[in-house]
Design a protein around this nucleic acid. Structure first.
Lengths: 123, 123
DNA sequence: GGAAGTACCCACTTTGAAGTAAGGTACGCA
DNA sequence: TGCGTACCTTACTTCAAAGTGGGTACTTCC
């Protein structure tokens, strides 16, 4: 009988660990959340996501494309036009990270007061 | 009239950006997911989350405590006994990252075949 | 005739996140 | 007497992630 062992993010060597790190990486979270709303062109995305360098955006998009979360559609026109959109699995992750991002935004005051309390308690 | 501007993760200077990075950081995701199931002691957590060093675990837990996601209960006994559990806001985030982690685990085969297809398409 | 936009790639450098190793305290065990 | 456990802290080091600045190829705008 073939023992098909379940993926476990708590194992260092489990592939799920790496995938999780891809989607929770600094820029991937923001890119996925953005693409959930609509598809974007490269430089649109660059303007939308504050602080990304071109290099990091390209790198992030490549990784997401490789994992099958993002679809890249390069039109052979001049000037170059490349549209990025979510695949169906990409939409699944994006919904989750988008929800997370929105939740965090809503909790800013709560977290900030917690930080103040923590900092005040120790010099 | 006081214009209370809404937090936006796409802004570099928005506090939500930093908080989001805390919860999506390498070890915080795994710690939060673990604590959703039950509360853990320090070294239990260290054994549960594969690959964390003591330093990183301590640092991660401190950051999560400061943000008000984790409650630290140090009992003044010998040997030291410190229990970590989620606060109510902590439970909210933890549910989201836990769902994400479980989803990623379930998508390992899908993602791996996407990677193979991507890699095969370019030498 | 520049300048700017588009979507990148490449090389170089910097930064900071993470790993390694050691120390500290107090016990219990052999 | 010295090892092991528990929960950290501090100092030192490493290495990958990220930033910087350059180049490309082509077009349209001023």
């Amino acid at each position: 009988m073939s023992e098909l062992l379940a993926p476990d993010v708590n194992r260092t060597d489990c592939p799920s660990r790496a995938i999780l790190e891809h989607v929770t990486s600094r820029w991937a979270v923001l890119v996925l959340a953005a693409l959930l709303e609509r598809s974007y062109r490269f430089s649109e995305l660059r303007r939308h996501v504050g602080g990304v360098s071109e290099k990091m955006l390209a790198q992030t998009l490549q990784a997401l494309e490789r994992d099958g979360f993002v679809h890249r559609d390069a039109k052979p026109v001049i000037p170059p036009r490349v549209d990025y959109s979510l695949t169906s699995t990409g939409r699944d992750v994006a919904e989750q990270v988008h929800a997370l991002a929105r939740w965090v935004e809503s909790q800013v005051p709560t977290v900030q007061s917690a930080q103040s309390r923590y900092d005040a308690a120790r010099p």
